[in-house]
Each structure stands twice: as structure tokens, then as C-alpha cells.
């Protein structure tokens, strides 16, 4: 059975996701921030965390953007092979972004040409599509601010590398970002695949719910990295303290015998995403 989904339906869903992601902080992020706040002993850092939490409450209550950098919209689609789209899928998504961003008084941050720049608008979004089994369309919407996107890192390791070196590279990426990209961070890590695919995995890792189940191996590496990163003493606004990183999320993929790509995609404390299934 082929199920038909109209372009209008997609546009409406994307518009809603834009608003939800930009105005309401993910509940798992709020929980992490509250936990970080309650265990912080550095007075200045604690106060900064308190302001971050207050900011999220004000944004939700007053329908204000959590952050003025309403990001580059990044859309991840899981399109069922039993779905027929009536209309143009990409156009429908970008129309939804336009609609949502306009409605939410969000910022136009996208320039049409990376080199000649020019006047900023809302679109296009960066769109990744996976074809999966089924008759549904899952849309995950990520608001990626560029303060943190600018601190992304990629390294093509030798296959014989010691795990310690990989860890050092990831910790170093956070150290280099320092206080510039709005700590405490969520650190997305992609390991394996190709250079481009490792980068995609690192970004996709940010979409995972913080408390979602993962393999024991990844979980072990994640918590060990979290401990290491939090020894950096960067803290919110760069004021020091225990909260430099709130969570590390790792996604892995098979890779070639000759290599080991590792990508880091940092996110600020305002990790903004929303998901819907049509």
C-alpha cells in the first residue's frame, strides 16, 4: 500500500517544528542544566547556569527565541518507501521553514551565497534524507547555531591509532572552542565511515535523546570523555567550574581498513531540536 503525504502537510509540520525547537528547550536539556546547576560549587558559574535556566523559562513563557542565533536549519528525514509525496519535498520543507521562522519572529541568518554573502533570509535548510521501510515520514529538525558549528573538527586517524589519541583529539576540540561557543556543551562525535559521513554522524548524535540507550562500548567512552572534558574547567561563560560539558553523544559506523575518521560537532547549552512523524 502506498500512502500519500501532501506537500502542504509537510510544510505545516516543519513550520510547527521550527517554533517548537526555537522557543521551547528540550526537556532532557533542561534536566541536564538543572542537575549541573545543583551540583555546581563555583558561585559565578552557578549564577550563569541559573541565568541559562531562567532564559529557557522566559523564552517558553513569552514565545521568544531561546537564542538570537536561530541557526542554520538542518532537517533529517526518514522517508518510508511506502510513501508518495504529492508535491515537491524540498520546496515543502523550505516553505515550512519560511513560515515557521516568520511566525516566530526568528532571525534570518542564511545568506544565499557563501562567498558574495548578500542579504540574509531564512532558507534553504540543509536536508538529509534516509529511505527506510514503512509508510511514514519522520522529520527531525535541528537548529544549529554557528557559534558552536564554527568549532567543528575532523581528523582522519590511522587505523592503528591508540584509543587514547582519539580521546585526546576530542577533548582538544573542546579546549580549542574554549568559552567561545556557549558552554556547557553537548559534544556530538562521529566515528567511522568516510570523512563526510563521520561529520554527519557527529551532527546526528546531537539529535539523540540524552538518556537514550546505547551500546555499552559507546556508553563507556561517552562517560570517560565527559569526565575528561569537565576537567578543563572552562564552565559557563568561561567562568570555570564543573560544567564544561553536559553530555557526550557518540555514533559509530563501519569504516575502511586504511582509516579511522573521527568528527566532532559541538553544540551550545541551547541544544534545540524537535521531531515529528507524519
Amino acid at each position: 500500500m502506498i500512502r500519500t503525504i501532501s506537500a502542504q502537510k509537510i510544510t505545516g509540520t516543519v513550520a510547527d517544528l521550527c517554533l517548537k525547537a526555537n522557543l521551547v528547550l528540550r526537556p532532557d536539556m533542561l534536566l541536564l542544566l538543572e542537575a549541573a546547576h545543583s551540583r555546581e560549587s563555583n558561585k559565578k558559574a552557578k549564577k550563569a547556569l541559573e541565568m541559562i535556566i531562567r532564559n529557557a523559562r522566559i523564552a517558553k513563557r513569552e514565545k521568544l527565541a531561546i537564542c538570537q542565533d536561530t541557526g542554520m536549519p538542518v532537517v533529517f528525514l526518514e522517508l518510508g518507501n511506502g510513501v508518495r509525496i504529492k508535491g515537491d519535498l524540498k520546496k515543502a520543507i523550505n516553505k515550512g521553514v519560511e513560515k515557521g521562522y516568520k511566525k516566530g519572529y526568528l532571525r534570518s541568518s542564511i545568506v544565499a551565497d557563501a562567498l558574495s554573502r548578500g542579504k540574509a533570509g531564512y532558507t534553504p535548510a540543509v536536508i538529509h534524507t534516509d529511505i527506510v521501510r514503512g509508510d511514514k515520514l519522520k522529520i527531525a529538525f535541528l537548529v544549529k547555531g554557528f557559534g558552536c558549528e564554527n568549532k567543528s573538527a575532523l581528523r582522519m586517524f590511522n587505523p592503528t591509532v591508540e584509543p587514547g589519541q582519539i580521546k585526546r583529539f576530542i577533548v582538544e576540540a573542546v579546549k580549542k572552542a574554549g568559552a567561545d561557543a556557549c558552554p556547557p556543551y553537548v559534544v556530538g562525535v562521529g566515528i567511522g565511515g568516510t570523512a563526510d559521513y563521520a561529520c554527519l554522524l557527529a551532527k546526528k548524535a546531537l539529535l539523540r535523546r540524552i538518556y537514550a540507550k546505547r551500546s555499552t562500548l559507546n556508553a563507556k567512552l561517552e562517560s570517560s570523555l565527559l569526565r575528561e572534558i569537565n576537567k578543563l574547567n572552562i564552565g559557563p561563560m568561561g567562568l570555570g567550574g564543573r560544567a564544561t560539558c553536559l553530555a557526550v553523544k557518540i555514533l559509530t559506523y563501519p569504516t575502511h581498513i586504511a582509516g579511522l575518521p573521527v568528527a566532532v560537532n559541538l553544540n551550545c547549552h541551547a541544544l534545540r531540536s524537535a521531531v515529528a512523524t507524519i
Binding site: 521568544l64 538570537q68 542565533d69 532571525r107
Partner: peptide
Amino acid sequence: YCGPTQRPKGKIIGACGPTTSR
């Protein structure tokens, strides 16, 4: 160092936090 969001109706300004100084 700031680029605010659009001004929502009835408000003085939108979200207006700092951008990366470096």
C-alpha cells in the same frame, strides 16, 4: 556584538544575546 531576532509584536526587541567576540 549582537544580531537580534526580529522584534515580536508588542515587544521592544527580540532575543538579543551576544555573539562570538573573537
